[in-house]
Amino acid sequence: MQYTFEATGHENVLSKHKTTFEITTDSTLTLKGDCIIGLNSNVTLNDFPQKLRDKIMCDDTKIELSLETPNAKDKIIGYGSSQLTLNHPSDMVCRKSTFTCSRTLMIKADKAAIDLDEDLINDLSNCETLKVTIKVDD
Rank of each mutant, 00 (worst) to 15 (best):
L52W: 02
L65H: 07
K16D: 07
G80N: 09
K75Q: 13
L45R: 03
L86Q: 07
T104W: 01
D110R: 03
I121Q: 04
V136S: 05
S102A: 13
H10E: 10
E128D: 10
K108D: 13
L124T: 10
K16L: 15
C94N: 02
H88S: 10
L116T: 07
T25K: 15
K18Y: 05
V13W: 04
T24C: 07
I76L: 03
D47C: 04
N12F: 10
I114L: 09
T19Q: 09
G78S: 10
Y3E: 12
K131L: 12
D59C: 04
A72R: 03
H88W: 04
T8G: 00
D74I: 06
E128W: 00
L120H: 08
A72N: 03
D123M: 06
A72S: 14
D60G: 03
C127N: 15
D137G: 13
D26P: 00
G78N: 08
M106L: 12
D47E: 07
I114F: 12
M1R: 08
L52T: 02
T24A: 05
E64C: 07
S97F: 08
D137P: 11
V43F: 09
I77W: 04
T30F: 06
T133M: 11
I76C: 01
S90A: 14
S82W: 02
D34G: 06
V132A: 05
G9W: 12
K75V: 15
K73Q: 12
T19F: 11
K51W: 08
E118V: 13
V13T: 07
L65V: 12
T104G: 02
Q83S: 15
C94Y: 12
T85D: 01
V43C: 08
L14I: 03
A112H: 04
D26L: 09
R103W: 05
R103F: 04
D115A: 03
N71D: 11
S97T: 15
N122R: 14
T44R: 15
G9C: 11
D123K: 06
D115H: 09
L116R: 08
E22V: 06
E128H: 14
I23H: 06
L120C: 10
G78E: 10
D137S: 15
S90V: 00
C94G: 04
H17Y: 12
T100G: 05
D26N: 14
T85C: 01
F21G: 07
S15G: 15
D54P: 00
L130M: 09
T25M: 11
D54K: 12
P89F: 06
H17K: 09
A112W: 01
L124P: 09
L14G: 11
L67R: 03
P49G: 09
D138T: 08
L39H: 06
C58F: 01
K135F: 14
M92Q: 14
T69V: 05
K96N: 02
E128Y: 07
E118T: 15
T129F: 10
D54G: 00
F21N: 07
N12V: 05
I121E: 06
L116F: 10
C58V: 02
L116P: 09
Q83P: 00
E11N: 07
Q50K: 12
M106N: 03
D119S: 13
D91I: 00
E118Q: 14
D138P: 13
K73H: 13
T4Y: 02
D123I: 06
C35D: 02
L14N: 11
N126S: 14
A72Q: 04
F21T: 02
G38V: 06
Q50P: 00
D117M: 01
